[in-house]
Design a protein around this nucleic acid. Structure first.
Lengths: 106, 106
DNA sequence: GACTTGTTTCGACGTCTGTCGATACAGTCG
DNA sequence: CGACTGTATCGACAGACGTCGAAACAAGTC
């Protein structure tokens, strides 16, 4: 991000990922999935903690999935979700600012 | 993010920052500012590269500023913007997934 | 097959967001 | 002061987004 200006296409793809993270419920969902035992969670584990309806949770999970941040699989009755670490690593690396090139914080 | 589920307040604050990054033009603005000589850029350097009007750029800069991602200062005729590295570092750290706890990538 | 539980999709609604042109504000120069 | 340049704000509009209840789909059980 610091070395050279982001190209139009790269910015478009990255902004789609950040958009998926721009909702508090989706952030908490991601965190809940990532911190869940085994690194994955069933949808049924995710509908409790939030004050929204189950279809809304399903919608948010779809957004995370289409952004490439999580993977999902049906195993019998339940659907499981897990975080795709490569995607998060990509975003994390983008936001790393070499201390040298940044103006000193106020 | 992996160690424990994000709290409601933390998620709200972080989602505001990610929302600021969820627009391709804002991402490119941020990158343009960060990669600019001296780590800061005048607004007049930023209105050229995009196919949108000057008020729109000004609006996007305001969003970045209110999200705490950039600082700004008027110096004479021009207004300068620079990246606040602490904010980006905070987001970057959040997205770092310890390889151990993540499910292996497909 | 019929019933039950878990999950997704659909359709609708109000709200938020990105964009613009017009306008206001800030500072510089005659 | 008056004109001019750089930047921010305002008001309006179309489109996207988060949410819900209802309904559809999937898989297991009787």
């Amino acid at each position: 991000m610091v070395r050279e200006p982001l190209g139009e296409e790269a910015a478009a793809e990255l902004s789609r990922m950040f958009k998926a993270l721009s909702d508090p419920i989706r952030l908490r969902l991601l965190s809940l999935i990532a911190s869940h035992e085994g690194g994955e969670a069933c949808v049924c584990d995710l509908i409790g903690p939030f004050g929204v309806s189950q279809p809304t949770i399903s919608h948010h999970l779809k957004v995370l999935r289409e952004a490439g941040l999580v993977g999902s699989e049906r195993r019998g009755t339940w659907v499981y979700y897990w975080v795709l670490p490569e995607a998060l690593a990509k975003l994390s690396a983008l936001l790393e600012i070499p201390a040298v090139s940044a103006k000193a914080p106020a």
